[in-house]
């Protein structure tokens, strides 16, 4: 962790859901902090609470108890409009299932990042092209999303997430649906983005991806622990 102010800080966070069979507690007393420039790999088995942790970080849900601070703002004190406003500008999300708009081109999918942001079209279009260039997919800009390979779709997903230069880039199992080579390529892409200054929180159940990050958090039965980075790349 660095000494700079955190982008995300969780203290005593609990998250549960009401189900027909009674309440289910997913996260228990979670304390975690993500500083600018971090590339945090969050690992843990399926059902351990990784996605719930990511949703809290993405301001897509609020904690049942405890405090989540995003850039120093307590998320549970923010209105729906404020939360949407932060999501618009400061958070980028990459999904395991890509969530493409299949009938639109790769560039239009990236451009969709600006749908709820008042940006001049020309500026947004240029930013979309730049994002596609960053992920090395400028050659497929005019191709319909449904015609792209899984790896290409995920790179479009990353381009969409970074097109507005978010403060925090979240990725939920981004390589979960990809073969080994595509997964490696995607992870390289994340590393380049992190080098360019984007803070990343990436959740995966694949322990081998830990080496790509600068920090390792382990999610186990609803708790978060700091893990070790075994590979060469840590705090380069």
């Amino acid at each position: 962790m660095t000494g700079t102010p955190s982008i995300l800080q969780m203290s005593g966070v609990r998250k549960g859901f009401d189900t027909p069979h009674g309440p289910v507690h997913i996260l228990h007393d979670v304390n975690a902090e993500i500083a600018p420039g971090d590339f945090v790999i969050l690992t843990g088995p399926s059902g351990s609470g990784k996605t719930t942790f990511l949703n809290l970080a993405a301001l897509l849900s609020l904690p049942t108890a405890g405090t989540v601070l995003f850039d120093g703002m307590k998320t549970s004190d923010l209105s729906e409009t404020d939360l949407s406003g932060i999501r618009k500008r400061a958070v980028g999300i990459v999904f395991q299932n890509f969530h493409m708009l299949p009938h639109r081109t790769a560039e239009q999918n990236v451009f969709f990042r600006f749908r709820y942001v008042d940006v001049p079209v020309a500026e947004a279009r240029e930013a979309s092209r730049e994002a596609l260039r960053t992920v090395g997919l400028d050659y497929a800009a005019t191709r319909k999303a449904r015609l792209l390979s899984g790896g290409e779709m995920q790179r479009v997903g990353i381009a969409r997430a970074i097109a507005l230069r978010p403060r925090l880039l979240l990725a939920d199992e981004p390589t979960g649906n990809l073969d080994f080579e595509s997964a490696q390529s995607i992870m390289q892409c994340f590393r380049r983005l992190n080098h360019s200054g984007i803070t990343i929180l990436l959740a995966t159940h694949n322990e081998s991806l830990v080496q790509h990050g600068t920090r390792h958090l382990i999610c186990r039965k609803g708790s978060i622990e700091e893990g070790a980075i075994h590979a060469s790349r840590s705090r380069e």
Binding site: L60, E80, R87, K88, F95, H99, R113, R115, Y116
Partner: peptide, 16 residues
């Protein structure tokens, strides 16, 4: 539903 989730993640409000 996925598209709704995507829109919300991109900053769409309930009203949007």
């Amino acid at each position: 539903i996925k598209e709704i989730g995507l829109r919300r993640s991109l900053g769409a409000t309930k009203r949007d």
